[in-house]
Design a protein around this nucleic acid. Sequence first.
DNA 1: AAGAGGATGAACT
DNA 2: GTTCATCCTCTTG
Length: 205
Amino acid sequence: MEYPVLSSVFYQREDVVQISKDLLGKYLVTEFDGQLTAGKIVETEAYRGPDDKACHAWNNRFTDRTRVMYETGGVAYVYLCYGMHHLFNVVTGPKGMAHAVLIRAIEPIHNVETMQLRRNMTALKPKLTAGPGALSQALGIKTAFNGVSLMDLASPIRIEDRGEVVAESDILAGPRVGVESAGECALWPWRFVVKGSVWVSKFRK
DNA sequence: AAGAGGATGAACT
DNA sequence: GTTCATCCTCTTG
């Protein structure tokens, strides 16, 4: 069974908030070392370089780490958080625009046993893939994937469109998680979840 | 050259 | 609700 990957047209749009919503219901797939794992995206957050204080590339800050965010939309931005969690983002927008979408939760679909093994979990629970660090561990996403294309079948990671559409009425918006120090931007409702999904992460206090 | 802190998760009480 | 693991990146001197 082959599914089309999301196109460069999808990623290169300038409205990162819209792309965040559009990514809900798409399938995040990793394939390397002969292992294919995949899940449906159910939670995302938008980060907008120029004017978003919570974004690493706020005020167009350009460093070794943020460099990949300025690439043409459609590549991965993976970075290490708290010294142990690999957080996966989708770079969006045209070249030179530092926008990205953080994938925060997926519904495990394919090769769930491998995900459980990677997470060292015996029972199938939402905790398996709820939260950006958790889903990355389950899918085997690591900082080595930073900068790779999401549109290439030869790439270890890609996003597929399996024809599922999440209606606007099925999307819940709220403030982003873990960005309290970002001033006013912390209140922007740029976290999106699929209404009713049990696979989304919990709000952090 | 050195130090502070982070888009988190798990294991505690 | 609280603590802490753990290391890379960025800022400052």
